[in-house]
């Protein structure tokens, strides 16, 4: 019995990975994210080699606003700092913000959602009304207001972004829990004497992991975007922290002077991360639930399906 259960459990993850691996778009996204992690990890090694050593915060007004080329592959900003070096170090900040925000908001959101869904009644009502209230406030304005209230800084930015992300997890988990708690295996576990905590943690939550994981992937993209927006407005991370949104904020002042490289590259970095995470999210959704396939089927498989259909049509 035990052995059967274990092999089945392992095979689901393997199955999902097998399907995920066949999706070229999703794999490309995974590749981009891994590449960015490498860039972030090696930022200290790469960055000095590119700009004027050491690191990303060396100001040199002689080199201010250089266009790409000549030792600076992405050019320099208004203080003569190498934009490539700042993007590489900015990857650290953004990926870290994305990860921590997702971890915390997912934990809180999943807890709230499963409590609301499992117990129902007045607890459910209170939690869901609170979430309705948070959702009624435009997310970006709410984040800006929270960031302004807490003051600038990395931790405060994460709180401002994270609070906004909680409702979506709570809603998804609640909807899932409402379905699953009525099923027989939950009843069976309850009759065997499992308490509420064990029921939720061991029996219900594992069955709603798929939408949570997909939401977390997309949520990380969202978190990075909102954090960049906060820095852009000036309530997020403050200079001289190399943050992509803050770099765009600097670039904005020189936009009309035609210094396109200051705008192009930091924004490209933001777009690339979000793009890659969305690709992974789409791929995961398809891999978890083959019925909902929305990605492209490989040409070979499509031909096979087409032929089968044609053959069946010819037969009948």
């Amino acid at each position: 019995m035990e052995a059967v259960k274990r092999t089945k459990k392992r095979s689901q993850i393997v199955e999902v990975w097998k399907r995920f691996r066949k999706n070229p778009i999703a794999m490309a996204g995974l590749g981009i994210i891994i590449g960015l992690f490498v860039l972030a990890a090696m930022a200290d090694i790469i960055a000095p080699a590119q700009g004027l050593a050491p690191g990303y915060d060396v100001q040199n007004l002689m080199n201010a606003r250089q266009f790409p080329g000549d030792g600076f592959i992405f050019g320099t900003d208004h203080l003569g700092r190498d934009i490539f070096a700042r993007i590489a170090h900015g990857a650290r900040v953004s990926l870290m913000v994305g990860f921590i925000v997702v971890t915390i908001s997912m934990t809180v959101g999943v807890t709230l959602g499963s409590i609301a869904g499992f117990y129902g009644g007045i607890i459910d009502n209170v939690i869901m009304r609170l979430i309705d209230i948070v959702l009624a406030i435009p997310a970006l304005l709410m984040a800006i207001a929270i960031a302004a209230a807490l003051g600038p800084g990395l931790v405060n930015v994460m709180i401002a972004v994270g609070l906004n992300a909680i409702p979506s997890y709570a809603r998804i988990v609640r909807a899932q829990v409402l379905q699953i708690r009525e099923q027989e295996f939950v009843e069976a576990a309850r009759s065997l004497g499992a308490n509420d905590f064990r029921l939720i943690r061991k029996h219900i939550l594992p069955n709603c992991m798929a939408p949570i994981i997909v939401e977390a992937t997309m949520g990380m993209a969202m978190a990075i975007a909102v954090a960049a927006a906060l820095s852009f407005i000036g309530v997020g991370l403050q200079p001289p922290v190399p943050e992509w949104g803050a770099m765009l904020s600097d670039a904005r002042r020189f936009m009309l002077g035609g210094y396109w490289h200051m705008t192009l590259f930091p924004g490209l970095a933001i777009a690339l991360v979000i793009f890659a995470l969305n690709m992974i999210g789409d791929g995961l959704r398809d891999a978890f639930d083959p019925k909902l396939r929305s990605a492209t089927v490989s040409k070979k498989r499509f031909e096979k399906i087409r032929r089968t259909i044609a053959m069946e049509a010819a037969k009948s």
Partner: peptide, 26 residues
Amino acid sequence: TFIGLLGVSIPNFWLGMLMIIFFAVD
């Protein structure tokens, strides 16, 4: 599908800045 994915990924303020640089400045 690719354009759709690209569209949800591009931050709108960056798109605005790029358009200003290209259509208004250049």
